[in-house]
């Protein structure tokens, strides 16, 4: 029974990882790409690891998988924040059809 649920979680996770990578190719600029890669890949990989935990149960591999989910959820948003902030600071422009950019307006007002 656990193996069936584990397989379901792994298949859903692989599907979301695929959508995340597809977004990395299709979306226009670095910020939009970060959206799809961070969100879909975080939950997709967590889902794969949770499926592995359901396969293995409470032993060596299963508990390591749970610990990896915790690390992933804590660190992935921080990397997204650091990448987007450093990209903006080093002058990467937004997509030309973007609606507004309050951050560079405020930075111009400060400097």
């Amino acid at each position: 029974m656990n193996e069936i649920f584990g397989l379901i979680f792994i298949i859903v996770g692989v599907a979301f990882d695929f959508f995340g990578c597809l977004g990395l190719v299709r979306l226009p600029d670095v910020y939009n790409r970060l959206h799809s890669s961070i969100k879909c890949v975080t939950l997709g990989t967590s889902s794969i690891l949770f499926g592995l935990f359901l396969f293995k149960g409470f032993n060596e591999a299963g508990l390591k998988a749970l610990l990896c989910i915790l690390f992933l959820i804590l660190t992935a948003p921080v990397t997204a924040h650091v990448l987007s902030r450093s990209a903006h600071k080093s002058g990467v422009k937004l997509w030309e059809k973007s609606v507004c950019d309050k951050y560079s307006e405020d930075k111009d007002a400060l400097s």
Binding site: F16, F19, G20, L22, G23, R26, L27, P28, D29, Y31, N32, H35, S36, K39, C40, T42, L43, G44, L94, W95, K97, S98, V99, C100, D101, K102, Y103, S104, D106
Partner: peptide, 26 residues
Amino acid sequence: ECIKANIDGAYRVVHPDLPIRPGIVK
């Protein structure tokens, strides 16, 4: 919210017209 975000993101990516209006708000 995380699951909703994934479904939303997957919908935006597979939609042929890319329904996005990006921008930085405060």
